[in-house]
Amino acid sequence: MNSENGAALSANACGETLDEDRRGFVKKLTGTALALGLAGAAVECARFLKPNVLYEPSRVFKVGALENYPFGSRTVIEGRGVEVVRERDGMHAVSLVCTHLGCLLKPVDNDPGVGYACPCHGSTFTLKGEVLGGPAPKDLPWYEMYLDQTGALVVDASKVNHKRSKLPV
């Protein structure tokens, strides 16, 4: 580079074109550095907006040992808005938050056709969480469930069980 510069200075004739070349190179360098720098900054800013963890109770929680859930039992998990249901063919955890405006549903056990009723605007759901009537637009989601290595049942309310597959236990 230095020797080239020296050559450029000594040869006046081609000085103009060489100057153009250098100017083009510097322009490109400036442009790239700025663009990359800004892109990096933008990525980091976006990353900053997505926190690693929030100040809220974990959405994955243990609900106790399997023995506490006999066949045919329906157990509301206090404070979590979830009901754990165990039937002969398996278990599932269903959300108790009404899909209309988010009231907490009441489990119904004196009507075989109705599983849950909303005290706010009267939506009703089947035991499986499908909408029966009322203003609720969507079925109740099921959450993923599993048995951990210590034998405790765990509900993962951060993951919706779209397939509505029961936990075979």
């Binding site: 360098l29 550095a33 700025l34 720098g37 990096g40 990525v43 980091e44 990353r47």
Partner: peptide, 23 residues
């Protein structure tokens, strides 16, 4: 101004690279 732009661009690039690495 050009050299300032280059220096700033490179500095931001290095810093965000460092931040990403540390993260």
């Amino acid at each position: 101004l050009t050299s300032l732009c280059i220096i700033c661009g490179v500095a931001v690039l290095v810093l965000s690279g460092f931040a990403a690495f540390r993260d």
